[in-house]
Amino acid sequence: MPDGITGLELDSAVRSELGTLTRPAAERVARHLVAAGQLLDDDPETALAHALAARREGYRLGVVREACGYAAYAAGHFEQALAELRAARRMTGSEHYAPVMADSERGLGRPERALELAASVERARLDHATRVELLIVEAGARRDLGQPGAALGLLDVPDLHSQAIGTSVARLRYAYADVLQELDRREEAAEWFARAAAADVDTETDADERRTALQ
């Protein structure tokens, strides 16, 4: 990897990919990727602009197409997100883009295609957090189709009842509670929002506020 990149917030795998570019190109692409990552949550449109700038020189790199896909998704440009993440998947062979791709199909009003995509994924190739996210997206697609009961059944997995804490279990319990509220099972929903809040050690959800609102 070019020496000038070593101070940037990029992991070793990304640095390895960038090492296939010339030094000046690698420097430019790396800086755009770092900027895209830093802006993704607060300013996704600008993050996307940086990712697309990186794409001009790094379009053959999976990490660049991944950055474009995630930024497009965050900005609500779902067709663009799908195109970029399909490219990233072809380049890397990774299935870890599946939750965002499936949710992009939902964003385009195509819940059936979201379910088809989810069903095509080899779950054994996914890490735990990605499996949970894909399950949440599947449940969302069922709700889109007017099937909240089916969504609830999808989410009722061993992880839901485990003693684990952290973002994944908190998000799973939050999704479960949200479906219960849709089904007008308010007491149960409040209980599961409370369980989500207890697991949400990084405060990634508003589970406690949702619980309070149901009391």
Rank of each mutant, 00 (worst) to 15 (best):
E105G: 00
A118T: 10
Y174H: 15
H128L: 07
L52M: 08
A67I: 02
H96E: 14
A197I: 12
A30E: 03
A36Q: 02
R65F: 00
A164P: 05
R171E: 09
G107T: 06
V169F: 06
Y59A: 15
H128V: 12
T92N: 01
R89I: 00
A213I: 02
Q80I: 13
S104N: 07
A36R: 06
A54Q: 04
R110K: 13
R125W: 00
L183Q: 13
D202P: 08
T167S: 14
V201I: 14
R60Q: 13
D127V: 12
R106V: 04
R186F: 05
E27L: 14
A190S: 07
A36Y: 01
G37L: 07
R23H: 10
L160M: 05
H161K: 11
A98V: 12
V132D: 13
L48I: 07
A124I: 10
T20H: 04
F78K: 08
E187T: 15
L155C: 05
L183K: 05
L126R: 10
V29N: 02
E57R: 14
D208R: 15
E9K: 15
R171T: 09
A30P: 13
E188L: 13
R210S: 03
A88Y: 14
H77F: 02
A25W: 07
A196E: 01
E112P: 02
R123P: 07
G153V: 10
D200V: 13
A83P: 07
E188V: 08
T6I: 09
Y174C: 03
L172C: 09
L39H: 06
G58N: 10
E27F: 08
D43E: 10
A75H: 07
D3F: 05
D43F: 00
E66R: 15
R65D: 11
L172P: 13
A54V: 07
L61R: 08
E209G: 10
R211H: 01
R123W: 06
D127F: 03
D144C: 01
V14D: 01
